[in-house]
């Protein structure tokens, strides 16, 4: 790991200032993605700006027709939140299935969303639920936010402050995890909510989270597992690695989609 300057700002303004003053600065939240790649010298930021001391970023608020989760909320916090469990139980369950206990206690929703790992769970939840990514300067629809592997519209000095999830009528997440890393090989969030019927898939495609229009249409006609069980997704662009080739991944997308639908009850 290369040397870097560590900043521990106590306000958002201070954090933004540190980012702007750095040559190659990076925001660090829980560090569950950034630190491993820094250890491998795959990322070599000149400055790390921690959000741990910035107040007001770790709250979960019930907004009636939506739930707003602060960017610094850990996965464990989301999983255990009475608000999330009560309003969007699928989101709490999804957070409870991320990585392992250590990861859930350190990793944050803001960090995960900003990193946009193609195998992370949150992108599927954000897209399926029609979430809004709130930053220090604007609001970005999840539909516009996840732009392919590790790509987002965030500016260099832009900081996510919260993610706002509309409350769906029903939703569920089903994941088939890589047995080694526990990242999703195929994770499917199905949601019937204000954004309409949505099926969002993570872990499977090299381009990151994607929606399955055919499944969404079929569920619109008939909300049942059988409606999606016969719909296969293309292997084009599917990730392929030691644990799962493209064909197996595509198959798992259909199985997980059906299981998610059935879990909606």
């Amino acid at each position: 790991m290369n040397d870097f300057t560590y900043h521990a700002p106590t306000s958002m303004d201070e954090a933004l200032g540190a980012l702007r003053g750095a040559e190659g600065g990076k925001v660090i939240a829980g560090g569950q993605s950034l630190l491993p790649i820094m250890k491998l010298n795959l990322a070599m930021p000149s400055d790390l700006v921690s959000l741990a001391g910035v107040p007001g970023l770790a709250d979960i608020a019930d907004g009636g027709d939506s739930v707003t989760v602060g960017a610094m909320c850990t996965h464990a916090q989301v999983a255990a939140s009475a608000i999330v469990q009560g309003r969007i139980p699928a989101l709490a369950a999804m957070a409870d299935g991320i990585g392992d206990a250590q990861v859930r206690n350190a990793g944050t929703i803001g960090g995960s969303v900003a990193h946009n790992d193609p195998a992370a769970d949150y992108p599927a939840a954000c897209v399926a639920l029609g979430a809004t990514i709130v930053t220090d300067r604007r609001e970005i629809s999840a539909d516009d936010f996840f732009r392919g592997m590790f790509m987002t519209p965030l500016e260099e000095d832009e900081v996510i402050t919260a993610v706002r999830f509309p409350v769906p009528a029903r939703a569920a997440y089903a994941k088939f995890a890589n047995p080694a890393s526990k990242y999703a090989i195929a994770g499917v969030m199905v949601a019937d909510g204000p954004a309409g019927m949505r099926v969002a898939v993570t872990g499977a495609s090299g381009d990151g989270v994607f929606r399955v229009a055919a499944m969404e249409a079929a569920l619109g006609d008939s909300f049942s597992g059988d409606a999606v069980a016969g719909i296969s997704v293309s292997t084009d662009g599917m990730l392929s690695d030691t644990a799962a080739g493209a064909e197996y991944r595509a198959h798992l997308v259909t199985v997980m989609a059906r299981r998610a639908v059935e879990a909606c009850g």
Binding site: N178, P179, A180, S181, Y183, D241, T242, A243
Partner: peptide, 11 residues
Amino acid sequence: LETGSYMNYTM
């Protein structure tokens, strides 16, 4: 080595 870490070597 394709399975060079716990990301893809399953214990």
